[in-house]
Amino acid sequence: MGAAVRHRHVLVTEMLRADGSRPETGDDDFLPARRIEPHHLVVWAGRWYLVAYDLGDHQWRVHRVDRLRPRPTTHRFSPRQPPYDDLAHFVMSSHDRGDTPAAWQYTGQARLNLPASIVARWAPSGSVVEHLDTEHCRLTIGAWSWAGIAGILATFDTELTDIRPPELAHACRRIAYRLAIVADTERNP
Rank of each mutant, 00 (worst) to 15 (best):
G2C: 01
G2E: 13
V5F: 04
V5H: 09
R6E: 15
H7A: 15
L11P: 10
V12K: 09
E14M: 09
E14Q: 14
M15C: 11
R17N: 15
R22W: 01
R22N: 04
P23V: 06
E24Y: 03
T25R: 14
T25V: 13
T25P: 13
D29N: 03
P32C: 01
R34L: 11
H40M: 02
L41Y: 04
V42G: 01
V43C: 08
V43M: 05
W44F: 02
R47N: 11
W48Y: 07
L50R: 02
L50W: 05
L50M: 14
Y53W: 15
L55E: 12
G56C: 06
D57E: 13
D57R: 09
Q59S: 12
W60E: 04
W60Q: 03
R61I: 04
H63E: 06
R64K: 08
R67T: 08
L68W: 02
L68K: 04
R71C: 05
R71Q: 13
R71G: 08
P72V: 13
T73P: 12
T74W: 06
R76E: 14
P82C: 08
P83Q: 05
Y84M: 09
H89T: 14
F90I: 00
V91T: 01
V91R: 00
M92G: 06
G98N: 07
T100D: 12
P101L: 01
A102S: 13
Q109S: 14
A110C: 10
A110R: 03
A110W: 01
N113S: 15
A120M: 08
A123R: 00
G126A: 05
S127Q: 04
V129C: 02
V129R: 01
H131A: 13
L132P: 11
L132T: 14
T134C: 07
C137Y: 07
L139Q: 08
L139V: 06
T140Q: 08
W146L: 11
I152F: 00
L153V: 12
T155H: 13
T158W: 07
I163A: 06
I163P: 02
L168I: 10
A169D: 15
A171F: 05
I175K: 02
I175Y: 00
L179S: 13
A180S: 15
T185H: 11
E186W: 06
N188F: 09
